[in-house]
Amino acid sequence: MDQESEAFYGRLKEELQNGTEWPSTYLYKFIVPSDSDKTDRIEAIFDNTGAVIETRKSKNGKYTSLSITVHLENPDKVIEKYIEVGKVEGVISL
């Protein structure tokens, strides 16, 4: 992980620790090019976590948005999932 990513995740962890009681429910939002392989890979990352995953294609069908609501134990678990999803090519995290 590069220094910029480390700094970002460090700030995110601090905000999550200070602003949320853990364990807690967290909402992830991602946008990916509409490719079933990419959405399947993201869904697999959250498999067996009890996550609720909603997908919606853009008007022209070129992109798919994913809203993933999942109950997690602590901020480290939130960041772990962001890092895993970040390995999927073309993903934009919101």
Score class of each variant (00 low, 15 high):
Val52Lys: 14
Met1Glu: 14
Val78Lys: 03
Leu72His: 00
Ile79Leu: 06
Thr49Ile: 02
Gln17Gly: 02
Ile53Ala: 01
Gly19Pro: 08
Val88Ile: 15
Met1Ser: 12
Lys13Ala: 11
Glu89Ala: 13
Leu66Ser: 06
Lys29Pro: 10
Ser36Lys: 12
Val91His: 07
Asn18His: 13
Lys62Phe: 13
Gly50Val: 04
Thr55Arg: 05
Trp22Phe: 03
Lys77Arg: 11
Ala44Lys: 14
Arg11His: 12
Gly90Phe: 05
Thr69Gly: 05
Ile45Tyr: 06
Ile45Met: 09
Glu43Asn: 12
Tyr63Ala: 01
Thr64Trp: 02
Val91Cys: 05
His71Val: 09
Asn74Arg: 03
Gly10Leu: 10
His71Met: 08
Ile83Arg: 15
Tyr82Ser: 02
Gln3Leu: 11
Val52Ser: 13
Ile45Gly: 03
Asn48Lys: 12
Val78His: 03
Ser24Asn: 14
Asn74Leu: 04
Ser24Gln: 05
Ser36Ile: 13
Leu12Asn: 11
Tyr26Cys: 03
Tyr63Glu: 01
Glu43Thr: 08
Tyr28Lys: 02
Ser5Met: 13
Pro23Asn: 02
Met1Thr: 11
Gln3His: 12
Lys57Tyr: 08
Lys59Phe: 15
Lys29Val: 10
Val85Asn: 06
Lys38Glu: 10
Pro23Cys: 01
Leu16Val: 03
Gly19Tyr: 15
Asn18Ile: 09
Asp35Ala: 03
Ala51Phe: 00
Asn74Glu: 05
Ala44Trp: 09
Lys77Trp: 05
Val85Lys: 01
Ser36Pro: 00
Ile83Lys: 15
His71Gln: 07
Ser24Trp: 02
Gly61Cys: 10
Thr25Gln: 11
Thr39Trp: 13
Ser93Cys: 07
Tyr28Thr: 00
Val70Arg: 03
Asn74Asp: 14
Val85Gln: 07
Ala44Ser: 15
Tyr26Leu: 08
Ala51Asp: 06
Pro75Asn: 13
Phe46Arg: 05
Ile31Leu: 06
Glu6Cys: 10
Val78Tyr: 07
Val85Ile: 05
Ser34Ala: 10
